[in-house]
Amino acid sequence: MSTLILRTAVKYIIPGMFLFSLFLLFRGHNEPGGGFVGGLVAAAAIILYTLANGVEKAEKMLHVSPQKLIAAGLLVALLAGITGWIAGKEFMTGIWLDLPIPVMGKFGTPVLFDIGVYLLVTGMVVKVIFTLADTREEGNQ
């Protein structure tokens, strides 16, 4: 599957896909989108790279292992929940900062929670793809 054309095309498509995934993530609170879809698109970008260049290079490009993305996602989501606690309210109560931020509008714990979902979904899908596409260990058997 890894042809020169695909590899060259992927180089230009992937940054765009990443940007699009972040766009989906942050506008999700007001327009169609959100952490789930954003994470899936981000994962799709990495998959495209994997198909073109192989798992080994994809792992290098990603820098962090997908397990760490999953763990980070859960932690961020939990953090978003605990913030409510720290603020003296129920677990998972939304806490919003009162200053407007360009592009995404307002920032609050629900946005943080969505970021956690985004990270976890990306990590999970990438993990599966790396597992399935990994041909290295089969050679050893």
Partner: peptide, 15 residues
Amino acid sequence: TAIVIGFGVQAFLIV
């Protein structure tokens, strides 16, 4: 969430 969970289960089953 059901769609995403279904996907997770499906991925697990495929592996």
